[in-house]
Computed example of a mutant assay.
Amino acid sequence: MNGRAPPRRIWLCADDYGISEGVNRAIRDLIGRGRLNATSVMVVGASIGRDEVAALQDVAASSPRCAIGLHATLTAPFRPLTMHFRPTDGGMFLAFPKLLRAGLLRRLDPEMIHGELRVQLTTFEELFGRAPDFVDGHQHAQLFPQVRDAFLRAVKEAAPGAWVRQGGRNQPLARRLGTPKALLLDILSAQFRRRAASVGIAFNPAFAGAYDFSGQPDFGGLMRQFLEGLPEGGVVMCHPGFVDQALISLDPLTTQREHEHAFLASAHFPPLLAANQVTLA
């Protein structure tokens, strides 16, 4: 009798479906290969519509338990779906640092954020014919002060069966202190988890996937770190994609997306999952 514990099921979630056709194609390719089991959709993206939604639904239907969520978006260069949303900058949402600063200084209007998120949730339901399986946030905006309560209220009202993504890790303190971006997510996520629990919304027990995109590091080596010790139900965030002009115009994360896709599609990825006793199935 084999006493080895069964593999832990984790979520490997590709963010940003809808930002560009190249990103959409890469995500669908990986879902079809069984290399992803979740993706989150930007309903404010430049490349979201009936055809892109139908293509995603088709490939997800052939992949057991592939979750499709809403990638709630509140930062530039994207534009609100609601009229008279404030604050904006040139008709766009505030840039990520400005939104975080405004939240910390309590200068945001939670009702406007709540209204915008309700419209994004409704738009998702109109496109997919159902509520999202989960809800996360572009650039982790769902974790920000003032945003988080509006976010959780909107999810509770419009998608009560969905779980939400928190960004806290399950790693030793020494490793957490060595990655400032991930450490900030840990701090913001602690309050987010408490608020989610208080209103009865489920969330992932652990998170991985944050890294400095600018240096184009070895994604295979990073994935090895992300999987280490990740518990059942943990989430690894990724951003695979093929670079196109729409992506270049909207996001600084470009060629690294192709490196992520290449590793996840490669023969090296399944043995790494097995070595860490995790599965996407």
Rank of each mutant, 00 (worst) to 15 (best):
S63F: 04
F96L: 14
P132S: 11
A95L: 12
I27C: 07
A274K: 07
R153Y: 00
A262N: 13
V59Q: 03
D58Q: 14
C238N: 09
D212I: 08
T254Q: 15
D109F: 03
G229T: 01
A208F: 01
L94E: 11
R28T: 08
T122C: 06
A206V: 01
L105E: 02
A196W: 05
R107G: 13
A210E: 10
A267P: 12
G69E: 01
F226A: 09
A281R: 10
L280E: 03
R8Y: 04
R35L: 06
P77M: 15
P132G: 14
A208V: 02
P240R: 00
A162E: 06
F213D: 05
Q142G: 08
R65W: 09
D149L: 10
I187P: 02
I248K: 15
W11M: 10
R176L: 12
G69F: 02
R25F: 00
P270W: 14
F207M: 02
V23A: 10
A60C: 10
T82Q: 12
A246R: 10
D244R: 11
P240C: 02
L104F: 05
L222Y: 09
Q191H: 12
P87I: 02
R224S: 14
V243Q: 13
I201N: 01
G168D: 15
K181P: 03
A14N: 08
A154K: 04
T73V: 12
F263Y: 15
T82P: 10
A190L: 10
L227E: 01
L188D: 04
F219G: 03
R65G: 01
D16T: 00
M112F: 00
L127R: 04
G90A: 07
Q57T: 14
R224I: 00
E21Y: 04
A141V: 10
F226I: 03
G115Q: 11
S266G: 09
G69T: 02
A76D: 07
A95H: 13
I48F: 03
S20L: 12
L173Y: 09
D244H: 11
R130S: 11
H140K: 10
E228R: 13
